[in-house]
Design a binder for these strands. Structure first.
Lengths: 219, 219
DNA sequence: AGGCGTAGGCGTACACCATACGCTTACGAG
DNA sequence: CTCGTAAGCGTATGGTGTACGCCTACGCCT
């Protein structure tokens, strides 16, 4: 019976994401988001309890963009499924680089994150992982994903920091400066994939379900 | 000839770290640090150009605590050296968990970080890695380290978030809730080690220098 | 059709933040 | 003992998140 809401939650979160994408994390403020919505600052609090919750909505929106439908690969090898899920998550996050710092603190409250995690655990389970082994494998993949996103978007080797490292005195840091120079030859996607392949190779060694069928790990 | 400084840079940075350790990242402000030093807020700006730089000093202090002397292991297998360097870095950061978010943005400006990176690259080089392979391996290790620190200190599975995940509806998220329950059986150090071993195993597969001597990768 | 209660929208205020500017003052060299 | 330098700091500005309370638009009720 009272006055109806003029905004949906989706409108709020996409406005916040638009501010974040367009103006950066430092410019993400209640005032800025409210202004983009054409409201007064305090009106935004009718839709959101705090700035924290607004950030949560952004993360939710970004993570809901992860496509969990693996298509024909869904019945393929579990390693391929892991690789696909990891790549999809990275791609979703990389579309909104300014959001990366928020993912860390708010991912646990996002439904999309949970669905993704459940899918990842499904692939691991099919690979023969259970109990603490599965915990360790899951967290290793998660850690790598999160760390790779961070390194990609605010690291010293990729992005602007690489140039600074490449300019280091070569006599003091011969390897670091050389590596920084080599880094330009490696695209971010390829870099992510190579690191991921290291983890997957490590998992394949541990895997007990398919070990007997895998010639590379036969004794 | 003028009035001498009353504080050293080390006193400034350790005061800032003390505030961070004792009161958390949100409480780290110029006011708080200045107060702990017994100065007015603006006096702190005689020692530091900005808050950013103050954060850099904290990171520098924390990262300088990484012991790069590997002892007898310095002449051992390169995998062991990698493992030791990774564990040392994790330990240094884990001593000051509130500092973890700062590491991401300020690590490139810290000398301790560069020395550590150079040492890590040295071990990789001894393992036969060079060029883009070395870049990929280095960043994979770095990404895992950074991600693991994040997950350990603000993740959903370790820390307080684990309980929330374990309480998820088991029918909607059977694997996630089971994994969250299993997670309590895995100490943080062991978890880190297991994930690290996955990466090292992946590196061993790629390694061309010692592959012929490694029975697990023989064709 | 008209009134009314609910809840949307927002103006103001407060505490806190980083920091620019300029004053005062302690200090050591001459 | 004087004087220049720079340390220390008081004040002010513009930013932030958000608590509180007012006005008012709206849709169900009679």
């Amino acid at each position: 019976m009272p006055r109806p809401r003029s905004l949906t939650e989706a409108e709020v979160s996409s406005a916040a994401l638009a501010v974040l994408d367009g103006s950066g994390l430092a410019a993400l403020s209640m005032r800025a988001v409210a202004q983009r919505l054409g409201m007064g600052t305090m009106s935004l609090y009718r839709y959101v309890q705090s700035r924290q919750q607004l950030e949560g909505l952004i993360v939710e929106l970004v993570l809901s963009g992860i496509d969990l439908d693996l298509g024909p690969a869904a019945r393929g090898p579990w390693q391929d499924r892991l690789g696909l899920l990891m790549a999809r998550a990275r791609a979703a996050a990389a579309e909104h680089p300014n959001c990366v710092p928020l993912l860390l603190t708010h991912r646990h409250s996002a439904a999309g994150s949970r669905d993704w995690g459940e899918a990842l655990l499904g692939a691991l389970t099919d690979g023969g992982f259970a109990g603490v082994r599965r915990v360790a494998a899951f967290r290793a993949l998660l850690s790598y994903l999160i760390g790779a996103l961070q390194v990609e978007h605010l690291g010293p080797l990729s992005g602007p920091g690489t140039a600074a490292l490449a300019g280091l005195p070569q006599d003091a840091y011969p390897l670091l400066s050389a590596t920084a120079r080599d880094a330009s030859a490696l695209a971010p996607e390829a870099e992510f994939r190579q690191g991921l392949d290291l983890l997957l190779a490590g998992l394949a060694v541990q895997d007990t379900a398919t070990a007997s069928a895998d010639p590379t790990t036969a004794a």
